[in-house]
């Protein structure tokens, strides 16, 4: 799981939001919703970042890994300065990821901010399985919006919301739910207040991806433990995706 990747692209795609593409061994990344942990020079702990997309181009495991991250200062600020050609040490294939088998024919994917990122590979996989995918992408304002067209290109039915109404539907992701039509399953990723709102508003069962401060990222330090209906879970190893029925809100 400890692999060297080479940056091939690292560009700003929206306000404070960067898309990084890396070349390396993606074979340990098996499900959408998993994450990688990046070692950055000068920062002690690795940065956990969701997998946005992977393309296995060779059949021998090497491929292109796409990550989307927000520059929130510190480590991610440093990440945003890295240029193509730079090599990074990644732990890959971390976390459980989403289960596409549970989706039924009409899955609804709801993401907020950088939480939109892992929904891209999820949408791609669901569509490849012949499902009709609708996505609701929530942002604060128009300059923060990313990947709206990319979701459309792969055949997803896309609704965008912005809190200030500068793009798409005004309001939060849940304000777009009534217009989403009927759906068979909900997949969600985003800030915890958004997950709570989706949890309350969504009509179906589903899977929700959580964030927590982590040290190791692979299940040994107990730094990111949370309580669930089915007992204590490590967000990094038993998560980050929890089933709706097992979530216990703090």
């Amino acid at each position: 799981m400890n692999k060297t990747f080479t940056i091939i692209k690292n560009e700003k795609i929206a306000r404070a939001t960067y898309e990084m593409k890396l070349l390396g061994d993606v074979s340990d990344i098996t499900r959408p919703g998993q994450f990688v942990a990046i070692k950055l020079d000068g920062y002690f702990l690795r940065r956990p970042i969701s997998v946005c997309d992977i393309y296995d181009c060779s059949g021998d495991g090497s491929g292109v890994l796409t990550l989307i991250y927000k520059n929130i200062g510190g480590g991610t600020e440093f990440m945003s300065t890295l240029r193509p050609g730079v090599e990074l040490d990644l732990l890959t294939g971390l976390g459980n990821g989403y289960d596409t088998k549970k989706s039924g024919p009409y899955p609804l994917l709801i993401g907020g901010g950088c939480g939109v990122s892992p929904l891209y590979l999820l949408a791609r996989r669901l569509i490849a399985e012949g499902k009709h995918v609708a996505v609701i992408l929530g942002f604060g304002t128009a300059e923060e919006v990313f990947y709206e067209d990319k979701f459309r290109e792969i055949g997803a039915f896309v609704t965008v919301t912005t809190a200030d109404g500068s793009h798409g539907t005004r309001g939060f992701v849940t304000d777009a739910l009534p217009a989403a039509g009927s759906y068979t399953y909900t997949y969600s990723c985003g800030p915890e207040p958004m997950l709570r709102a989706v949890y309350k508003a969504a009509a179906t069962s589903g899977e929700y991806s959580f964030e927590e401060r982590m040290a190791c990222g692979f299940g040994v330090c107990m730094g990111c433990s949370c309580r669930t209906v089915t007992g204590y879970k490590r967000i990094c190893k038993d998560g980050p995706v929890l089933e709706k029925e097992e979530i216990l809100w703090k």
Partner: peptide
């Protein structure tokens, strides 16, 4: 269970 979150700081 241990302490509440967050438990880790860099």
């Amino acid at each position: 269970f241990g302490n509440e979150q967050p438990r880790i700081a860099e």
